[in-house]
């Protein structure tokens, strides 16, 4: 995984490789949860949504395992320099992935409600696009981790802006649907929470990508993260403004 030589104490290498393998496994499970969560929403597949909900337990267990392993490595191996950065980044990444798992689970919970409601035209496709972008960002962030590729990680950080912009768009879309017909409100509120969950996942992926930059360079990227979620500060995202359009 690293271009550094092996440790003299080979058990140290095994420990570090072990926790990194766990984090990759966890990342894979979260990727699948996002993909299946979005698909279950699009195809109104309650069974798949149920799988996503129960699958979160495995993600939580992995987080616990990784935290225990990381604590053990710190206590027994006293890691320094790049070894220390591996352990620190793994700890933070596992927290990010665990939160992403929760958000995917929440998405699947809402899918369970949504399948019982009148579908909102076009909403599933919009959310699928956001979900696909987040999933791809996560895949690239994990690849960047494996390959110790700070450039790819920086690219992922940049792409969070796209997710934010997609979220802005669906936010306005749902607002319009709700204004058109109050009977859409329940479904649109759920859809909006799903969109917000995906937008939050993008932030967590960004944090993972920042860990990769830290791991490779020893410093966090200093420029402010691109922020394009305008819904909380811009009045264009209020009902009155949507009505005028």
């Amino acid at each position: 995984m690293s271009d550094l030589k092996k440790h003299i104490v080979s058990g140290f290498d095994r420990d570090l490789e072990g926790i990194q393998a766990q984090i990759m496994k966890m990342g894979g499970l979260v990727e699948a949860a996002i993909r299946d969560g979005a698909r279950s929403l699009e195809t109104r597949d309650e069974e798949l949504a149920q799988q996503v909900r129960t699958g979160d337990t495995a993600i939580d267990q992995l987080e616990e395992l990784i935290n225990e392993e990381a604590a053990r490595v710190i206590a027994l191996r006293a890691p320094t320099a790049s070894d220390l950065r591996v352990v620190l980044s793994v700890l933070r990444m596992s927290a990010n992935l665990e939160r992403m798992g929760d958000l995917a689970k929440n998405m699947a919970k809402r899918t369970g409600v949504l399948v019982q409601l009148q579908p909102i035209e076009g909403s599933a496709a919009s959310l699928r696009r956001v979900a696909r972008e987040v999933e791809l960002m996560l895949k690239d962030a994990l690849d960047a981790y494996i390959q110790r590729d700070a450039e790819l990680a920086r690219d992922v950080i940049e792409r969070d802006r796209d997710v934010d912009q997609m979220y802005n768009t669906v936010f306005r879309e749902f607002l319009t649907f709700m204004l058109e017909d109050p009977r859409n409100i329940t479904a649109c509120m759920h859809l909006h929470f799903i969109a917000k969950n995906l937008e939050r996942m993008g932030d967590h992926v960004t944090s993972i990508a920042e860990q990769v930059v830290f791991l490779v360079t020893g410093a966090y990227p200093d420029e402010d993260r691109p922020k394009a979620d305008m819904t909380s500060t811009d009045t264009r995202y209020s009902p009155q403004s949507a009505e005028e359009d």
């Binding site: 003299i8 320094t80 320099a81």
Partner: peptide, 17 residues
């Protein structure tokens, strides 16, 4: 101990050959 600049330092303090 957190971010040495030379790879020889890194190898030594992290216990690599």
């Amino acid at each position: 101990f957190t971010n040495p600049q030379d790879s020889r330092t890194e190898s030594y303090i992290t216990g690599r050959i």
